[in-house]
Nucleic acid binder design. Structure first.
Lengths: 241, 241
DNA sequence: AGAATCAACTTGTTTAAACAAATTTTCAAT
DNA sequence: ATTGAAAATTTGTTTAAACAAGTTGATTCT
């Protein structure tokens, strides 16, 4: 779905970098050269390049040019930044995913749940527990809370496959923003029961609130990761405060 | 240092949001209104707003407007995304920082170090171990590797205070990009010795490669965090791949 | 009353142009 | 050969304008 010009250019440049067309530390063609190559305005080029900057692929230097700082060995990991479903990231890494639904219920948010999730008291919710396998190993235990009036008619069968696919392709909900917090927590009995933790006594926990395109938070999820398989990549840039 | 117009606008809008000028879920003034308020072009407004989007403060909706999704309780944490020194984040959260230098040496990268850090074999490096205290508690054990010919004349005294302040204000090195990987690792003897881990047997580990404005990776750092005080915030947006 | 249409908003994309700021190259003078 | 100034080239900021696309509200028609 190449809808916009700058996305096309972004993708083309990205794949060229990944293919090794430019050496590590080599400068990319200048903006003027790229304008000619892609037959577009300078703004469009700059927009594509700035997306590569936030990906950590390149670095711009005023007066000098745009330097390739992509290193293939580092970039291949389970998670790279953005919002991605378990299915998507598994497939991207050519792994075999499986999901087991441990629990599927409907609840109403009380004070305790409201404090934990951020949903208002009295919200009607789906609550699920799901176990995610990769190549046969149980890696992630998920606690999902969905607003019932947004994720309408969610079923156990859908939850076994891909909830995100259902939300996006059937309900046409577009997911936009997700606020995440990563912490390390002691294991619980339920963690111990389902995840093979070996002699680790804690897990990597990612709590996230997800918003749809109406600006409504419709999902709260706590993902509890087996620590030896957890890996989160990030690209930070020095920004003005 | 308000150098650019869009930074000024960004900061002003941000502080207005933080001050509660707009209700949660309320729409901000439209672009046209903001153009009049700040006497600038539409592009400049859009640039400021898009910075707020990446901060997770607002969400834009085509045809509708820009919605405030800032929640004060969530935003106050030890780390929010960007590149920040220990000193900076401590001060931002009004805490009393202290740094103890456990080890300060000069080394040459062999195969093992090169593989771990990403520096070429033979690189001349400063290697330090530092213990960071907050309000009297030892929270972070840092292993720092700096390229000697970039972080010239680094001393134990500087390392006790703030290396980043030295790099930026004395050497005028501007830090631009940092590639980070977060994992959970078993504790080592040295972790156990310096950090009060209680009955946790693992830590949150953040490994980072930092680049200067010449595109040279000049720092590799492994930060080992006491798990009960580790917290990493992030804002993900669904982006085109 | 209900439906359809249109107008008036909103944000999203793209182009063009001008100037600023930093770096590199060129070239002339010493 | 070295220095130094000027020119050319690079990215960074800002403005202006036009059109696209989505939403809302009013108006009109049935």
């Amino acid at each position: 779905m190449p809808k916009t010009k700058y996305t096309d250019i972004y993708r083309d440049l990205k794949s060229r970098i990944e293919a090794g067309e430019y050496e590590f530390q080599e400068l990319l063609p200048s903006e003027n050269q790229l304008i000619q190559r892609y037959d577009c305005s300078r703004n469009t080029i700059r927009r594509a390049v700035s997306a590569l900057v936030t990906d950590g692929y390149v670095q711009t230097m005023q007066g000098k040019g745009v330097r390739n700082i992509f290193q293939p060995t580092l970039q291949t990991s389970f998670t790279i930044g953005g919002i991605e479903s378990f299915q998507e990231s598994a497939l991207r890494n050519c792994q075999v995913p499986k999901t087991e639904v441990l629990c599927f219920t409907e609840i109403t948010a009380d004070t305790k749940i409201s404090n934990r999730t951020g949903f208002p008291i009295g919200s009607e919710l789906y609550y699920l527990q799901r176990l995610h396998y990769l190549d046969g190993k149980a890696l992630i235990l998920n606690h999902n809370y969905f607003l019932k009036h947004v994720a309408v008619n969610l079923t156990r069968e859908i939850a076994e496959h891909s909830i995100y696919e259902y939300l996006e392709q059937t309900l046409h909900i577009s997911i936009v923003t997700s606020k995440r917090i990563m912490t390390v927590e002691k294991m619980t009995e339920i963690d111990e029961k389902y995840l093979e933790l070996g002699d680790y006594n804690c897990l990597a926990v990612v709590s996230s609130q997800t918003y749809n395109s109406d600006g409504i938070m419709f999902e709260y999820t706590q993902s509890r990761h087996r620590p030896d398989y957890f890996r989160f990549q990030d690209n930070a840039t020095r920004r003005v405060i």
